[in-house]
């Protein structure tokens, strides 16, 4: 998969460089540079063909739309990755906190119910078995 990305990156870099050179030729056009311009135009078409070929190798890649928004705003898309990771870690910690709290609550509830309803809790434990260690 990494090879496919490298291949696409290489083609895109070549394409961008060709477009840049095309821009330079066009920015101050001289009659003698018509041949070069024609050549660059055909390079651009072959570049598009190469990129089109890369599309088949990367059809199963999904790009999050939020990353597009970052690029459209002129922001570094790595910031999106950073925020995703930070959000995931924060949510992970939040859920862990909830699980830990609920586990403590459960063990406390069972112990307190065992004091008030000892027979029922004995039956409950017979059905459910012993609680897994929290």
């Amino acid at each position: 998969m990494a090879e496919n990305f490298d291949n696409l990156e290489e083609h895109l870099e070549k394409f961008v460089e060709n477009i840049r050179q095309l821009g330079i030729i066009v920015s101050d056009f001289q009659p003698s540079s018509q041949t070069g311009l024609n050549q660059k135009l055909n390079f651009m078409i072959t570049g598009l063909q190469d990129i089109e070929k890369c599309r088949q190798q990367l059809h199963d890649i999904n790009v999050p739309l939020e990353a597009f928004e970052y690029i459209d705003q002129g922001r570094n898309p790595q910031l999106y990755t950073k925020e995703c990771l930070e959000r995931a870690l924060a949510k992970n910690e939040q859920v862990k906190g909830k699980i830990d709290t609920m586990t403590k609550f459960k063990s406390l509830l069972i112990s307190e119910l065992g004091k008030v309803f000892p027979e029922e809790m004995a039956r409950y434990k017979a059905i459910h078995g012993d609680d897994p260690p929290s």
């Binding site: 970052y70 690029i71 002129g74 922001r75 570094n76 898309p77 790595q78 910031l79 990755t81 950073k82 990771l85 930070e86 870690l89």
Partner: peptide, 17 residues
């Protein structure tokens, strides 16, 4: 990946990427 992106400051602008 976490250390790469969250350990140091990522530059804000697209031109740095």
């Amino acid at each position: 990946a976490y250390n790469k992106f969250c350990g140091k400051k990522v530059k804000e602008k697209l031109s740095s990427f």
